[in-house]
Design a protein around this nucleic acid. Structure first.
Lengths: 138, 138
DNA sequence: AAAGCCATGCAACCGATTTGCAAAGTTATG
DNA sequence: CATAACTTTGCAAATCGGTTGCATGGCTTT
C-alpha cells in the first residue's frame, strides 16, 4: 500500500505516522490472515519485539486493528475495516485452522445474535470456529 | 455432594477416585460459575498447584469438566452436564462479566450455527459474550 | 514381600505478555 | 535558533499462566 494511503489511515484514527508505524501498518495490510506478534516480528529483519507490541497496542486502542483470541494462546491481529468501531454489531466470526494454524477473519460472516438471560448486558463478544480451512480440507 | 455420588461420576468416566480427585470434584460441583486453576487453589488451605493442574487435565480428558477460554488469559473450568461428549452440538455459550470477573456457563443457550465458506470444515467452536452479569448490571 | 504402576509434590522451565527506564526523536515555546 | 516538554523507541528484566522432569509415596498385582 502506498505511503500516502497508510498515512491517511493513521490520521483518520488520530495516530501519528512514525516510520515504524507505517512499516507495521503496511505489513499488516499485506497479510491475508490475522497474525501474532511473533509472526510479525519474523517478517522484519531486525526489530524490537516490544516496540512492535506497543505499536499493536496503539493500533488496537485506536481501532486500526482488532485482536483475536483464537484460543491458541497467542493473540492475533488484523486490520479493521474502514470505519469499524468494534461494536458487537460490527463483529465477524474468526476461523482457526488446526492444520496450517492460520487464523482467518470471516469478515462477511457476522456473529449471530444470542438472547441473553434477563439483566445480562452485552458489551463484546468473541466467536471462533476451529477446524480445517479451504486449503487444508482437501 | 455426597461421596458416593462423586465416586459414581468418576467411575462413569473411568477415572479412579482418589482422595484428591474427590475433593476437587466436590469443590467444582459447589461452584456456580466456572473457575480458574488459581481460583481453585485459593479455595483449599494447602494444595500443590501442579496436582490441581493435573487433576483438572485428567477431568477434562475424561469429559468430567470442560475448559473455557473466556479471553482473560486464564482458562476456566466447569462441570460438564451428564453424558456430555463435548461435541460442537453440545456446546453452550459462556458469559464473562467484566465487572465481577466471573465466567458463567449459559448451559441453556446453545451456540447458534454459522454457515462457513465453502470447504471450511468445522470441528470445534467457542463463543464468549462479555459485559455485565445480572448481579452487576443494576 | 517384591515388582510395577499411578498419583502426588516440588523445582524448574517455557512462551506470551507487560513494565521500567534511559536514549533518541519530535513538537511546542520563547 | 535554542531549550523545554512530550512521545516514541530499544533493551533488560519481571510477571503470569501453563507445562514438564523427576523423585517420593501409595496402592495393586503377582
Amino acid at each position: 500500500m502506498n505511503d500516502q494511503r497508510l498515512i491517511t489511515i493513521l490520521h483518520a484514527r488520530s495516530v501519528k505516522p512514525t516510520a515504524m508505524r507505517l512499516l507495521v501498518l503496511d505489513m499488516l495490510a499485506q497479510q491475508e490472515t490475522a497474525i501474532s506478534l511473533s509472526d510479525l516480528e519474523e517478517q522484519f529483519d531486525k526489530v524490537d519485539k516490544v516496540t512492535l507490541y506497543r505499536t499493536l497496542k496503539t493500533f488496537e486502542q485506536h481501532k486500526i486493528i482488532h485482536s483475536i483470541d483464537d484460543g491458541t494462546g497467542s493473540a492475533k491481529y488484523a486490520l479493521c475495516s474502514e470505519g469499524c468501531e468494534c461494536n458487537p454489531g460490527d463483529l465477524h466470526v474468526h476461523f482457526h485452522c488446526q492444520l496450517c494454524k492460520r487464523t482467518f477473519c470471516l469478515t462477511d460472516y457476522t456473529i449471530p445474535a444470542v438472547n441473553l438471560p434477563q439483566k445480562f448486558v452485552l458489551k463484546e463478544m468473541n466467536m471462533v470456529m476451529k477446524g480445517l480451512c479451504e486449503d487444508c480440507s482437501t
